[in-house]
């Protein structure tokens, strides 16, 4: 008997051509359209850690909010979101958020300052005995039982991280979106937090790690999606981030890799385009060393290349 093809597990989340825009009134009645996310495509499978890496303003947090359906009401969303092979409609988002898709937020500001921490963790539980589950999870994350009775302002940075991860843990969600979970933290705490996220993936959950810290991402991620001006320019396996970046496909990923201190500290001139004046062609074209007239005319589509995905006419 021939074994069935060793296919990868089906994606739990499939984001295709996601665009998010906001209408804004500038002076008088002049309308401006801000496009923080343009044609973003990304998939994530159970048991894997996918890092979404980009500089600030690349639309990382909005991606998380779009998946959860908690964008501000004036946001316009196009594209398809599929969760476990079903369309992720606004109604499904309401049903799934918190129970099957959980967010690990950035900072202590995401906890109600006047509510005890334990109650806030328990409110994320959607089935079973919340009190028992909270005690077990606190024990697992080495949080003393009395921490449950504390208010957020009484927590240290490391305790806050563990409490925030606890909320995702207690929900039993199969997709966990960690939005910049290690901002400005001590390296031991960063390592510990990332370790917790890796453990969650080890239990068969899918973990989307949204971060600007490419080095942190490399330590636990399986694949890395590189965001530029709200679009995915490349999705590569962690193994491609090596040497001088020759295995990477997109010029921006290469530039990002080479900008790291240990890889030469090379600076690419220019900045991300302004959100209301996106270039008509490739979004990276204004800064790209490989730019040709083709690049200004049309936006490149994503295409598979060497086991990854790239959005560039010239990548080979």
């Amino acid at each position: 008997m021939i074994a069935p093809e060793a296919s990868e597990p089906k994606p739990i989340l499939d984001v295709r051509d996601l665009s998010v825009s906001f209408e804004q009134y500038a002076r008088g009645l002049q309308k401006k359209t801000l496009r923080p996310i343009t044609s973003l495509s990304v998939t994530i499978r159970p048991g894997e850690v996918l890092a979404v890496v980009g500089s600030s303003g690349s639309g990382k947090s909005l991606l998380a909010h779009a998946i959860l359906g908690i964008l501000p009401s004036n946001a316009r969303v196009t594209g398809t979101l599929r969760h476990a092979n079903e369309n992720l409609t606004p109604e499904r988002q309401v049903a799934l958020r918190g129970s099957d898709i959980a967010l690990v937020p950035q900072s202590v500001g995401f906890l109600n300052p006047l509510m005890r921490v334990g109650a806030q963790v328990r409110s994320a539980a959607h089935n079973g005995n919340a009190a028992e589950a909270q005690r077990a999870i606190f024990a697992r994350y080495r949080l003393a039982p009395e921490v449950a009775g504390m208010y957020p302002f009484q927590l240290s940075g490391g305790m806050t991280r563990r409490v925030l991860v606890s909320t995702a843990m207690i929900s039993g969600a199969s997709l966990i979106i960690a939005d910049e979970p290690t901002p400005g933290m001590h390296s031991a705490v960063v390592e510990e937090t990332l370790g917790h996220l890796r453990e969650l993936a080890g239990e068969g959950r899918a973990v989307m790690l949204i971060t600007h810290d490419i080095e942190a991402a490399l330590t636990i991620a399986d694949r890395i999606a590189v965001l530029y001006a709200g679009t995915t320019v490349e999705i590569a396996s962690v193994a491609d981030f090596t040497g001088d970046g020759q295995s990477l496909r997109h010029p921006y990923s290469k530039a990002l890799w080479r900008a790291l201190p240990q890889n030469g500290f090379a600076v690419t001139p220019g900045a991300q385009p302004v959100l209301d004046e996106l270039p008509p062609g490739c979004l990276y074209e204004p800064r790209c060393p490989m730019s040709t007239p083709d690049c200004t005319g049309a936006r490149p589509e994503v295409r598979a290349l060497r086991g990854g995905v790239v959005r560039c006419f010239h990548a080979a």
Partner: peptide
């Protein structure tokens, strides 16, 4: 408009629960 209400939404809390648990608690004092 606070981050903790955004997070409460992400945790799947209903709009009424958000108003009751987070709104009133922080506004009453």
């Amino acid at each position: 408009a606070s981050d903790y209400v955004l997070f409460a939404r992400a945790k799947g809390e209903s709009e009424f629960a958000i108003l009751w648990k987070h709104g009133l608690r922080n506004v009453a004092l």
